[in-house]
Nucleic acid binder design. Structure first.
Lengths: 335, 335
DNA sequence: TTGTAGGCGTTATCAA
DNA sequence: TTGATAACGCCTACAA
């Protein structure tokens, strides 16, 4: 095996008949190189297939260009949409995403964050799981920036991007009431994710404000199958609800399928359903689900912009609260 | 801003009262360190929050531990499942995934591969797009390993992982015939992806072998919406097909929704439908789609194992052909 | 504008 | 087993 090594700036310099520094400068935006030198260097580089070694560059500049994405359930519609949007935005800012899958590691973003430190990632974006406070401090102490998405937390330091779950809950409750629903329920997973709990609390509170008692059911993971089980549980009750707010679209899809096929309920005539996330499937004709749109592009934009901003950002931990727009579809009467 | 730099091995050594080398050895599996030294080093490291700098390590070892994942449409069910499986497997082998999103870059995996070279990725796994031959050669020359998934290509050097699309096509044709279908069609996207074309060719050939002319329609991207359009086109024909093989599940879902709602066709009574991929949604009750399972775990397994194998692998470009199992559901009669 | 020298944090080599 | 020393490929003064 030839095992030809990577081409180094040294070799390019030799080939071009200039010094190593000339090569370095050629590939450093804004450095002073004469047109002639640059031409010679570029020619030699092209010929040899030279690419700046970002590892070595990161070592020197103390800035790797790497951003670590920490997430579980990457194959989920909403999560994958978010990952896709963020990776794109990062690339637009000439950064690169390192994806750490925390599906199997027992609940620790911690291990992932240590990975991020090891690779000297400039920043980490956490989409799932809550890291230990000490690890967060460690990251910050090391000059790493942190973004927490959809994890309502009191940590100091990281940027937090959240949604106005309370307001959404109030809005959807109003919609259910306008549709003439009398018995409302909230269908949640048992995962106890901060944002899902916020939606639950918000919906309950909104109900209370109207003098309505909301039934709450929690089960399993935040997935289609759990939605079906939740339907089994809620729709066999004596006081069967006629308006159900599901914590996510995925739950809602499962819920709707079970409601229609196992309970022969017509949606929205006999049962109104709403979800959250506005995943692609919510727009599919079989569901046509009324839901809240989580604008992944906005999230990505906010996160990456903050990461690219100069360090002079205020020491206080900023919080961005985004608005989730209600997307009206046919799973709720009226409209 | 304190901007405390990262902790270096030097500092740990000083703190522990040993040499840099001792620290290095402590963090190098299989190196010879006395228990006492190791203890002291670990204590100091823990105290200072030291993490080996993988950038520097990669520089020395000429092995970064980084594997570049090059993909478009990451938010798609099948693609995201694949990404998830691969990232996990990589982590199991203590490697890390760098995700390059090629959605917007005009058809070049090329740019992505250059990124991979810049970061001295040990390997690249290409899930979408076909890179230019010269770039592939460049990667290989630089000692980078390449894996092409589902892209039937004649490139020499990379590992190619494919599916037996022909056999699948034959099997599903038989199933359609057994179900009593007379007029068969293949619904494809216009993306001309190698694997999708292979399925199309295979289905046509299988039909020909049985003396049946298969109608082919191609439209748009490989997405739900295209499936709907394909239904519009195919189901308005005078010789309306009664058995349709969709190139992917995503197309099939759109197709089914349109068939049911716009054409009031009952599936499978009046129309049989099959897909490919076995995405999660294919198992949802609204679709319950008969399809072929692309085992993402197997793909990930094969790819990562090959990457982790010693360099002594044969120079010839190996090809792995996996078997896509038929998953029987209710979208085809009989069974 | 250019080249030279020194250092970034590691690991590999070698002598002790 | 340990410590000194030389790379790895790059960038950034500094001097020319």
């Amino acid at each position: 095996m030839a095992e030809k090594e990577f081409v180094s700036a040294q070799e390019v310099a030799r080939r071009a008949g200039v010094s190593r520094s000339a090569v370095s400068r050629t590939f450093t935006p804004g450095a002073s190189v004469s047109a002639e030198t640059r031409r010679k260097v570029m020619a030699a580089a092209e010929e040899l297939g030279y690419h700046v070694n970002h590892l070595a560059r990161g070592l020197m500049r103390n800035e790797s260009g790497i951003v670590c994405l920490i997430a579980s359930e990457v194959a989920t519609p909403y999560r994958s949409a978010l990952v896709s949007a963020i990776t794109q935005k990062l690339q637009d800012h000439s950064k690169i995403a390192m994806l750490v899958n925390t599906d199997r590691s027992d609940g620790s973003a911690d291990k992932a964050l240590r990975q991020a430190i090891s690779y000297r990632a400039d920043a980490s974006i956490i989409l799932s799981g809550l890291p230990d406070k000490s690890i967060v401090q460690l990251c910050l102490r090391n000059g790493q920036r942190l973004v927490l998405i959809n994890r309502d937390d009191d940590q100091e330091g990281p940027l937090r991007i959240n949604f106005d779950n309370d307001e959404a809950a109030r809005r959807i409750l109003t919609a259910f009431l306008r549709a003439g629903c009398r018995r409302l329920a909230f269908a949640n997973s048992a995962s106890m994710t901060p944002s899902l709990l916020a939606r639950e609390r918000g919906f309950l509170a909104a109900g209370q404000a109207e003098g309505i008692e909301v039934i709450v059911e929690r089960y399993g993971q935040t997935a289609y199958a759990s939605g079906r089980t939740l339907a089994q549980r809620l729709l066999t009750r004596k006081d069967r609800p006629d308006g159900v707010f599901c914590a996510t679209d995925l739950l809602a899809c499962g819920f709707m399928d079970a409601a229609r096929n196992q309970f022969s309920l017509s949606i929205p005539d006999q049962l109104c359903v709403a979800g959250f996330d506005n995943i692609e499937q919510a727009g599919w004709e079989s569901y046509d689900l009324t839901t809240f749109d989580q604008p992944v592009d906005q999230i990505a934009q906010q996160a990456v912009e903050w990461l690219s901003a100069p360090l002079s950002a205020p020491a206080a931990s900023p919080t961005v609260t985004l608005h989730a727009e209600l997307v009206w579809r046919s799973s709720i009467r009226g409209g």
